[in-house]
Design a binder for these strands. Sequence first.
DNA 1: ATAAAATACGTAAGGCATACACAATAAAAT
DNA 2: ATTTTATTGTGTATGCCTTACGTATTTTAT
Lengths: 241, 241
Amino acid sequence: MTPARKKPNINTSPLELMPDFQFAVSVDCVIFGYENDMLKVLLIKSDLPEFKSKWSLLGDLVHPDEDLDAASYRVLRERTGLEDVFLEQVHTFGQLNRHPAGRVVTTAYFSLINVKDHQLKQLDNELHWHPVNDIKTMAFDHKVILDTCHKTLQKKIQEEPIIFNLLEKKFSLRDLQNLYEAILGVSLDRRNFRKKLFTTDLLTDLDEMEKDVPHRPGKLYTFNHARYAKMKKKTFVGIDF
Amino acid sequence: MTPARKKPNINTSPLELMPDFQFAVSVDCVIFGYENDMLKVLLIKSDLPEFKSKWSLLGDLVHPDEDLDAASYRVLRERTGLEDVFLEQVHTFGQLNRHPAGRVVTTAYFSLINVKDHQLKQLDNELHWHPVNDIKTMAFDHKVILDTCHKTLQKKIQEEPIIFNLLEKKFSLRDLQNLYEAILGVSLDRRNFRKKLFTTDLLTDLDEMEKDVPHRPGKLYTFNHARYAKMKKKTFVGIDF
DNA sequence: ATAAAATACGTAAGGCATACACAATAAAAT
DNA sequence: ATTTTATTGTGTATGCCTTACGTATTTTAT
């Protein structure tokens, strides 16, 4: 330990921001979608010689006049054409040699979109959807970022009704259960699943049926945003570990 | 929307990191402690003219050769003299004008320490402990950062046994309950609290009693790290919102 | 000694999760 | 048309966990 001594500091003293202490800052978006009963993520091919033919997340440098959140929204919009979708910060990765070009600190976001809602923009570099479970390696530290975001997703869908962002407006209970199972990697009891979902009181019965399914059609539901907004945020106090 | 077009990008193309796209990157540590039945946080006075006499978190610029995590550990060590303590990243704040000196992106960490374990280092700028509930305003966006970390703390102590980092090695159940109540801002039933804690099987009965207390002394316990490490991480699957 | 305060232990009721069974309906096969 | 098959839709019993609350014990203060 160095002895106590007054040292100029970014929070306490007016000081100039020196170039040596400036880094590139980027955002990387883990864009999740759901297709063919699989959780998927939108990836692009990296042209960097160090990562030739490896897959990378969608990211970009944060612009000088741009908030972090704004930058991630921009990346998302440029790649999917979507606005007003679920997007949330997860974690910031600042390892020394995570990027070959130099020091780049990146903040990871995860997004949930309905695959059928959008058309992919800028189809350069083979932008497309990959089943999350098939991905073994990626460029940079992106596999770690993806895994982190996947875990966050698994945790969050159990705590908040964000999963509906991955489905179309109208869905059957079977759709919803398949999606939960795909994300969590478990199988759930159909009867208990229904019961649980109905007790949340967040599904509106549309009095409509599935169409063009090769079996008995199920009822269609929609997520009741209004009722969730009104729900008093559960002040859960419990110890559970 | 701009039409689809190939654009150089930090993840796809080799490109130089231009000075305009480089920012200062800092870490800010929300160091929590527990004293006199109150949750407290370690703060320092800011000398910046814009925030004269306002309180600030403990932070610093990340050094060019330093990981983000390493930087926050350094700040913690320099200020408290402590190593190997609980420290975890929470969120990154990148608002455009959050720092008067220019563009500074900061990553917030929260730490849990036992107040009696340490001596404060570098007592310049009136470094000391403040009750979290008394803090109304702070320098920079630090009040927002503090609130974010406080909420994260409230959530995490219900999910993982990290709260013991705030107590001494030996503690009574009363101590533990008071601490939970101080952090969560609720009162808990004493009998149910005991029962719950004992069922976790993570407390070792030391067969010792409190000393020098002005009432009937309670038993002393210690947190069983080994048993927690062995516990199979609960693969909880439930929907709860 | 007695009162006050905190610890320590216990029990009953209700709610919630889990496990499991069967009827109804629509599509596909015969 | 009838039967078969697959899937939807509903119900019930059990047990565990949370919650609410009662009472005895131990120590300190008067």
